[in-house]
Design a binder for these strands. Structure first.
Lengths: 344, 344
DNA sequence: TTGAAAGCGGTACCAT
DNA sequence: ATGGTACCGCTTTCAA
């Protein structure tokens, strides 16, 4: 039935050389004469030989794995970061081992534990909040770590992230600048999405610093926070505080759901109510009106993360670690701007 | 510096037992007395021992990997399928090894080749189009395969998919039913996105079968086809065929981009032009107007795929293979319906 | 440039 | 319920 896959020994026998020579011939940059290399290549092809990494890994103590955990697969922001990582790693012999935590620290711990058995050469996690055991596991492993999308107070290792609180603050400042006074927030209520919570914290703090009320907070429930949650939350916001003038949402998806819900209720955006998001998703750019958002360079985070790792692993040079802090940047669009309001 | 990770032998020594007993104690369902198991567990914890899968894999000839390739990370449809797979596999000791092909058969071949070295226990690919070498590699490996999102003429193994042509046809029938005559298509021009191409083929064939002109085809260029491409394509469509009455787009993302572009140009949807998509993304539901689309149960595809695999691997019972064919289902919404047109 | 031998860290298999 | 032993398929190391 399954006639047992050929091994290096089979190739060696067929080519009339030792397994060591086969091993060398199959990698680049090793001293093997052109003639024997060709002979070995042909023998390997004829047998349909495929190298067994499991054995190679065990012997060489190198797996070529980079373990990466992200909260959710269906989130274009994290997907962008992941793409940055994968694309930067392409060309090296490093491969991503991906897991998603569903925003749960316990699930993250479970994943990390599973991943550590695979002996990854590096670990990338999203955010700085982990279970105590998870921190210990990573610490004991001695594997280089990068925490992304956050600026942890107690970093495990390298960090490539941004201040989520600053993102919230940025939006408040924008709202105030545009003359809004009754300002609300949608999302970020549970301890699961700690980054969303941080954005809300920064948002609330900035309102208070400006002497504004910070009570219009609608909890969306546990993540993922999709358009549906955004829509439901907007309905609750309008029910409870009908005179709300501006709302920031924890994500662009939520903002779109919230905005369309307001529009369906007959409100004009931004004339009757302003709506803003977070993440600079393409959606916010194409929506009508275009949605004001905060750009945190998701893909760039991934690229830098991979670069940091390559340096940590000695696979790339670099005198200094790249700047690890990404600066959130507000993108003002029609959904919150006075110009759009006046032109109505 | 890095004092070499403890091995099973270290744990065995510390607990005063043999490595075999340690090996058994660390897995469930093996005959080890409660007392020694506790003792071993404590020794392992004290040492910070973490099992080395590489060694276990080599010895047991089981890696616990399922190799999965999808065209793109940033595509919520594929992400849904992936989620279906991962969630179904959770609880088993199978782990997904993910790669994205960027819609390229050559990249797929490269990935599959890389993955095969890891000795996956199963392979999942998107679509039925592969390079000849890729087909051979998979065939030689003897690893169970599932092709998804398509109904290949020459299947490599199991299939969990749907007819992309049928999806295109479905939309044409809907358009005709709603009284549209000048109908166009956006997307699916390159050989890279073979499934998008199939949808267009089915679309064109259905138009012709109904005696309608099938020349309003706008090529978006190579995938990924995002909102931006949808918008640009709509502009081209309107420039070239200003009297177009209805447009199907290759994806909901493209449809949203196309629709908003039309709206920005001052057109009303569906009064002036109807727009439809594909994939039943949340976006199509929340957009204003809501966008008519085709639901192909992306997540369900993933769930079934994983179920098929579990059976193939003997990890789940099941008398028969589950129905492998998913039926595309049209979801009619305001963006294309007469009711919405009349009510204007 | 090539080869021989000794593991890498587990598990299968057979005893006890 | 527990242990001994022979590998799994490759790379490291040292020698030729």
């Amino acid at each position: 039935m399954k006639p047992k896959a050929p091994t290096m020994a089979d190739v060696a026998a067929a080519a009339g050389v030792s397994t060591m020579t086969v091993s060398r011939a199959l990698k680049p940059d090793t001293s093997v004469s052109e003639k024997t290399r060709t002979k070995i290549q042909e023998a390997a092809d004829a047998l349909g030989y495929v190298l067994d990494s499991s054995a190679a890994n065990l012997s060489s103590r190198k797996t070529g794995f980079v373990a990466v955990t992200i909260p959710s697969i269906n989130n274009s922001n994290f997907a962008d970061t992941l793409r940055g990582i994968v694309d930067t790693l392409r060309g090296t012999d490093l491969q991503v081992l991906l897991g998603y935590t569903d925003y749960s620290k316990d699930e993250e711990e479970r994943l990390i534990e599973q991943f550590l058995r695979r002996r990854p050469e590096a670990i990338v996690v999203t955010g700085g909040a982990h279970t105590e055991r998870c921190r210990r596991l990573i610490g004991n492993s001695g594997v280089p770590v990068v925490e992304t999308w956050d600026l942890p107070e107690m970093p495990l290792g390298d960090v490539v992230g941004f201040s989520n609180a600053a993102a919230g603050r940025l939006m408040v400042e924008h709202f105030i600048e545009q003359g809004y006074g009754k300002i609300g927030f949608i999302g970020g209520d549970t301890s699961r999405d700690t980054r969303g919570l941080d954005r809300r914290r920064g948002f609330v703090a900035a309102l208070e610093a400006n002497g504004l009320a910070a009570d219009r907070l609608v909890a969306t429930g546990p993540p993922p926070i999709t358009m549906r949650e955004g829509a439901l939350s907007m309905r609750r916001m309008l029910d409870r505080w009908p005179d709300t003038e501006a709302v920031m949402c924890v994500s662009d998806q939520a903002a779109f759901g919230a905005m369309t819900e307001a529009q369906r209720a007959g409100l004009k955006v931004p004339q009757d109510i302003a709506v803003a998001g977070f993440g600079a998703d393409a959606l916010s750019e194409h929506a009508i009106p275009a949605i004001t958002t905060v750009d945190v360079s998701c893909e760039e985070i991934g690229v830098r993360t991979a670069t940091v790792l390559l340096r940590a692993l000695g696979l790339a040079e670099g005198t200094l670690a790249p700047e690890s802090k990404v600066t959130p940047r507000l993108i003002a669009r029609d959904s919150t701007t006075n110009a759009a309001r006046r032109s109505s």
